[in-house]
Amino acid sequence: MSASNEHQSQNGDLGQVLCDLADPQAEGPFADACLALPPKQLFDAILHHGIEPIALRKLTGILPQEPPYPTLIDAVRERQLLANAHALVLEAHALQLTTAIDAQGLNAVIVKGQVFAKALYDRASDRPFTDVDVLAHPASVPAVGAILKDAGFLLYQKQMFDNSARNMEQKWVREDNQNILIELHGNLVHYASLRWRVSFGHDEYWTASGDGDFPNVAYFMTAVIHASAGHKFHRLQLLADVMQAARKLTEEDIRHLNTVLDMLRARLEVLVCLDLVCALFGDEASRHVRDSLSPGREYGFARGLVTRDAVIDTWNDAGHRSRMRRHAFRWVQRVAPR
């Protein structure tokens, strides 16, 4: 077997194991499939893809109690204990912040990690998060910043080349513990050159939610934008969020999504995310959502750029094949008709 074919074969086996581990509702991988992989390779990929909590409970019962597996499992377990403790601290700050936002009637909402963990996953601990994300209307950003300052947070800015204003993203850290981070977003699309093509600020979030009547659609669109326009599909966790959100959509939710999708100008991102979820996980709920979307632009070329392997290989991108495909998709996002 050539070196190239061997690389593809190992990535194929690893990819299936990672997908089985990343899906919180799927059965775990077969022990033989896990044991056929180099242990360090497997655990490095799990860490990179942000799926340690789900992998921990699936692997604990199938890996042998012989080196190096106990050491690797213990390291994951220790990281998860620390992550869970950190999440509790973040939740306390998030509650304090939400109470102040509501009291002042500000147009701001907590999004992403903490919300996904509770709303999309049966076990909140399956979705780790390391900060609190607040999406605020630009007019409300100063008032939310004042709340954070009064609560003991400092606005972190680089001394040179700080892009907070351009990216519409502020980072606030506790004065007494800079590991406690709250990110204040005016828009979840941080790239200014992309934002004029696809935007997802507080107004778009509220549109997706149907003025609060369809929260699941807002969660779904947030996950799509986070994976495709906030990042470049660089972790399985991002697409697991999309899958979990798609699984929550009712038929009424899907009808609402159909009515607002073109208003949000994100049909390309939705289709590519659903294609990837189907390719990675074979998820029937996501396939149903994709097939239920009203006819519109199909974006055939763009949908073929980011492949299943391109997502899996982000952890060890030999030859930069994954990077080139994902950056090519970002270019298409900037020029594709909306």
Rank of each mutant, 00 (worst) to 15 (best):
M1G: 14
A3G: 06
A3I: 10
N5Q: 12
H7Y: 15
S9P: 01
S9F: 09
S9A: 15
Q10P: 00
Q10R: 14
D13M: 10
V17D: 00
P24M: 10
A26Y: 03
E27Q: 12
G28I: 03
P29C: 01
A31F: 02
A31C: 10
A36M: 02
L37W: 00
P38H: 10
P39L: 00
P39H: 00
L42S: 01
F43K: 05
D44C: 03
I46F: 00
L47Q: 12
H48M: 03
P53Y: 01
L59T: 00
E78R: 02
L82T: 05
N84M: 09
A85P: 01
A87C: 06
L90W: 05
A94C: 12
L97W: 02
L97R: 02
Q104M: 12
G105P: 07
Q114A: 14
F116A: 14
D122E: 13
D126K: 05
R127D: 07
R127V: 08
F129W: 04
V132G: 06
A139E: 12
S140F: 10
V144I: 12
A146C: 07
Q159L: 14
Q159A: 11
M160C: 09
F161W: 11
W172F: 15
V173T: 13
E175S: 11
E175R: 12
Q178P: 05
I180W: 02
E183I: 05
L184R: 10
L184M: 08
H185M: 10
V189I: 13
A192R: 09
L194W: 05
G201N: 09
H202W: 15
W206A: 13
T207P: 01
S209F: 07
S209W: 04
S209D: 04
G212W: 06
D213A: 15
V217K: 08
Y219C: 07
Y219T: 02
T222L: 07
V224K: 06
V224S: 05
H226Y: 11
A227F: 06
G230M: 04
K232F: 08
M243H: 03
I254H: 04
I254F: 05
L257Y: 12
R265D: 15
R267E: 05
E269V: 03
L271R: 10
L271Y: 04
L274D: 03
L280N: 06
G282R: 10
R287P: 02
H288Q: 14
V289H: 09
D291T: 11
S292Q: 11
L293P: 14
S294T: 11
S294L: 14
E298K: 12
E298C: 07
Y299E: 04
G300I: 09
A302M: 03
R303C: 00
T307C: 02
A310M: 08
A310G: 13
A318P: 02
H320G: 06
R326Q: 15
A328N: 11
F329P: 01
R330Q: 15
W331Y: 13
W331L: 12
W331K: 08
R334K: 15
A336R: 01
A336W: 00
